[in-house]
Design a protein around this nucleic acid. Structure first.
Length: 879
RNA sequence: GCCGGGGUGGCGGAACUGGCAGACGCGGCAGACUUAAAAUCUGCUGGCCUCAGGCCGUGCGGGUUCGAGCCCCGCUCCCGGCACCA
């Protein structure tokens, strides 16, 4: 315990035995206290029903190669939050773990000839050391590593829970395939038609895959966003857009039998309904619309090129048209998602088929066009050119009729006069029995009518698709399913979990690497004992990350994914911190998991994360730090040159946490200067402070009664300290503005230096100096934990500064006896005056009018009015 | 196109609820200390002018108000999300 001497010396009041160094030796200090915290297991926590809990969580990282100041920023935000809450008496859970399954490990392994496990573990070890070096205080006993069997066993268990609850299913469907990653992707993982990881254009493939039925929770995921008041608006909006709920109706359009079989069918209104009601599925086309009120304006129909009706049209058409249709369909299929959706020219082709508008009973042509997507709605839309801009353009291009059925306040009466579709509300016209109905009411009425007549029904559809979780790669949790010739799809019984990922060496992609491992694939059926094959796909890593925050509450639990009592104590996460890139992905999946587990009775909360902070990026040379751009500033480099405390304070001081900021070396130096000044003020004043007992606080009455006022420098010093405490507390509590909180500490320090500069030693109050020093050190403790720990001991304390309570402020100090009041004439600042705090309006008015500088502006003018804001300003209005 | 966020000195950013715009930091300038430099400390630092003073100034144009960076109307530009979504 090398520091004992220094502490005793400080407590003795310095002198010849004083060993506090004048030099701020951050290397020595940081190492010393990091070791001390380890030894004392300072950040380990247990459930304690007697204390309020606080769960502070940073999104667990993917252990890739390089960590940089961007990571440093997130972990620092989390650590400051955790330490700050601890100082407020909370029982703080602040854990860390590893999102250790995933493609980069596999790709890096292929590239470097190393096994993904070794690569991952080496990275984990390095990042762990770096986090330690930053002084981040985690409860490492709770560390979870997603690629270890004791974790993924429960990921598999949760898959089975989904399966049991009908939420995991297998289906053949056109899915997103990334040729570069050689695997399928969930919809959320395709960004603008490109793979979210490697930016490769994604193609559609027809494959049989496993899905989670997240769409069953679409309404709750959407509606419960309203509960998330502690989330940034933009994240909620992104999820809202992603879920994309639309209210509307299905409408069945009866197909007109091939030409000649029913001549004149379209002539008699009413037939439509009979045909619609009796025809088999083959005999009608179902559309989805949000504007059923415009049904009578549907003059044609369009189906997606992939729609089964196109196949039928090809069968029934003459050879020339059939060939044309085939070509059209192939062209649409071969276009990538981006090409197809970025081309605004709406290409279409008549199929040769007709159907009946169930409203008007008229025969209308069925077209196919690439602007209709098979994936959304029913893959078929009714064409209402007068009231939908796309339909309008399509109709103009192909000479289809336009019929006005909604009359808005100033919409054209005649279709011929239209230059664009009228998409607004209005009154239904030319719509049979509905004519005269306001469009909003019309939507309700038409839906009711459709339902009554068996022609359709009101419905709600979503943009959200079910979550595709199969991955054709090696480095993931195996899907615990067995295929038996006799029993079919058989889930692996829970007592046989985990399905262990074999330690293969050939994981080159192409097909699922596990399919090549005979010992893995060949198994026996859990039901009949006969020969069976294992599922060889692994799970999307987002499955692993959808529940890790629950595992932290009871990481050793061997009977379940988590202990009920522990999860009830700790959940929900009080503060979640992470990147905005997960606004939809991870944050939506985790909300889904939480709701499923809630429904299964395993979890009380319906939402996992009460408050969310989406932190901004750290950029350098205008771009996010990344290995490929070569603009990385590493924490090691920072720790070596300036120390962890400087790195921590700088990343918080540079900008509010949710904003991006540009790294500057000069800014770091400024922060280092600040900490060195903190060090020196303690060094310079330690002997004086030692004359007052540690922890002493000056009662406000003492300086006030002693004739204090603005001119009493000791009182002014205390005021500065108390103001700092107040501002820092409010800035952190109200809005996580660490930047302005740190600025408040800097201001106080500036006052402190002015005090030292201006107040002769004989006039300095040891008690006031001690109180000011201690408040400064305490307030900086969460931000710069090492230097404050050292200084705290130098101030004569036995225990850790991190076990202390956050300081309080006293309004009696914060408030002053005198205030400066601005004097304006016609809203323009002309003078200032110092008056007693709380001075009356009349007094202020008179003093303001008497101000010397005010005179020339008032002279010879009529004073119309004097606005007085006590303690702030007086505005004299003249004419 | 729709939705969300934003535009403040040379730079990062402050400004509670409509009340002294530019806190704090960086950079710059000047001074002190030093043989000198670095470091440190102190002061100044939005622009302009006829400079003890005044005028202008928070993307642009209007409005409300005694008073607007903040509220209202109309634009504009930037960032993010969604997007032939029926």
């Amino acid at each position: 315990m090398a520091w004992t001497g220094a502490r005793e010396a400080a407590a003795r009041g310095g002198g010849e035995g004083d060993r506090m160094q004048e030099h701020y030796d951050f290397r020595r200090i940081e190492k010393k206290w990091q070791d001390d915290w380890d030894r004392r297991q300072a950040f380990e926590v247990e459930m304690d029903p007697g204390k309020p809990k606080y769960y502070c969580l940073v999104m667990f990282p993917y252990p890739s190669g390089e960590i940089h100041m961007g990571h440093c920023r997130v972990y620092t935000i989390g650590d400051v939050t955790a330490r700050y809450k601890r100082m407020h008496g909370y029982n703080v859970l602040h854990p860390m773990g590893w999102d250790a399954f995933g493609l980069p490990a596999e790709n890096a392994a292929i590239k470097h000839g190393k096994h993904p496990k070794d690569w991952t573990e080496a990275n984990i070890a390095r990042i762990k050391r770096q986090l330690h070096g930053l002084g981040i205080g985690y409860d490492w006993r709770r560390e979870v590593t997603a690629c270890y069997p004791d974790y993924y066993r429960w990921t598999q268990w949760l898959f089975l829970l989904m399966y049991r609850r009908g939420l995991a299913y297998r289906k053949k469907a056109p899915v997103n395939w990334c040729p570069e990653c050689a695997t399928v992707l969930a919809n959320e993982q395709v960004v603008g038609g490109l793979c979210w990881r490697c930016d490769t254009p994604v193609v559609k493939k027809e494959l049989e895959q496993w899905f989670f039925r997240i769409t069953a929770y679409a309404d709750r995921l959407l509606d419960d966003l309203a509960l998330l008041e502690g989330w940034p608006e933009r994240v909620r909006v992104m999820q809202e857009n992603w879920i994309g709920r639309s209210h509307g109706a299905y409408i069945d359009f009866p197909l007109v039998p091939p030409a000649g079989t029913r001549p004149g069918a379209e002539a008699r209104t009413g037939d439509a309904r009979r045909v619609g009601a009796t025809a088999a599925d083959e005999g009608r086309v179902r559309v989805f619309t949000t504007r059923q009120d415009t049904l009578f304006g549907a003059t044609y129909m369009v189906v997606a090129p992939e729609h089964p009706l196109v196949e039928r049209a090809i069968r029934e058409a003459d050879p020339a048209r059939a060939e044309e249709l085939r070509r059209f369909r192939e062209r649409a299929r071969d276009l990538s998602e981006i090409d197809r959706t970025s081309d605004p020219a709406k290409e279409g082709l008549f199929t040769g088929l007709y159907c009946l508008n169930p409203g008007t009973g008229e025969r209308i042509p069925v077209w196919t066009a690439d602007y209709v997507l098979m994936e959304y709605g029913t893959g078929a839309v009714m064409g209402v050119p007068a009231h939908d801009q796309r339909d309008f353009e399509f109709a103009r291009k192909y000479g289809l009729p336009v019929r006005v059925v909604i009359k808005g306040p100033d919409s054209p009466d005649l279709a011929e006069e239209m230059t664009e579709a009228y998409e607004g509300e209005g009154v239904m016209v030319d719509s049979g029995p509905f004519s005269g109905t306001p469009s909003e009411e019309g939507r309700r009425k038409v839906a009711q009518w459709l339902e009554r007549e068996g022609l359709g029904k009101a419905t709600t559809i979503y943009r959200l698709r079910d979550w595709l979780i199969s991955r054709q790669r090696y480095w993931g949790a195996p899907i615990p399913i067995v295929y038996c010739d006799r029993c079919g799809v058989v889930p692996v019984p829970e007592d046989q979990l985990p399905v262990t990922l074999p330690h293969v060496v050939d994981f080159t992609p192409g097909e699922s690497p596990l399919a090549r491992v005979k010992e893995f694939v060949e198994t026996t059926c859990p039901d009949c004992g006969g020969p069976a094959r294992r599922e060889t796909d692994t799970m999307d890593t987002f499955v692993c990350s959808s529940w890790y925050y629950l595992r932290y509450t009871s990481p050793g639990c061997e009977k379940a994914p988590f202990d009920k009592e522990a999860v009830d104590y700790w959940m929900p996460v009080d503060q979640y911190i992470g990147g905005i890139e997960h606004a939809v992905l991870h944050l939506l999946y985790s909300r889904f998991f939480t709701k499923v587990l809630h429904d299964a009775g395993m979890l009380r909360p319906v939402e996992p994360f009460a408050n969310l902070l989406a932190q901004g990026m750290v950029t350098k040379d205008g771009a996010a730090m990344s290995k490929s751009k070569g603009n990385i500033v590493s924490p090691d480099e920072m720790a070596e040159r300036y120390g962890a405390d400087t790195a921590r304070v700088f990343v918080l001081f540079a900008a509010p946490p949710e904003k991006d900021f540009e790294w500057t070396d000069a800014g770091v130096q400024g922060t280092f200067r600040f900490l060195r000044r903190v060090w020196r003020i303690v060094y310079d004043l330690r002997e004086l402070a030692a004359k007052a007992p540690p922890g002493s606080v000056v009662p406000p009455a003492e300086t006030a009664a002693g004739g204090g006022g603005l001119d009493d420098p000791n009182r002014a010093l205390l005021r500065s300290a108390h103001r700092m405490v107040k501002k820092m507390t409010l800035d952190i509590d109200r809005r996580f503005n660490f930047n302005t909180a740190i600025a408040a500490a800097m201001e106080m320090l500036n006052d402190f230096y002015r005090y030292v500069e201006n107040v002769p030693e004989a006039e300095r109050s040891p008690a006031a100096v001690r109180e000011a020093l201690e408040k400064l050190v305490l307030c900086l403790a969460p931000f710069a934990p090492h230097i404050t720990e050292e200084l705290w001991r130098e101030l004569g304390h036995e225990g850790s500064v991190h076990d202390e309570r956050w300081p309080e402020w006293d309004e009696a100090y914060v408030e002053t006896e005198e205030v400066e009041v601005a004097v304006q004439v016609n809203g323009r600042l002309r003078d200032r005056m110092v008056v007693p705090k709380g001075a009356g309006e009349e007094e202020l008015r008179e003093k303001a009018l008497a101000c010397a500088r005010v005179g020339p502006f008032v002279e010879g003018k009529e004073v119309v009015k004097v606005v007085v804001v006590p303690d702030r300003l007086v505005n004299i209005v003249v004419r």
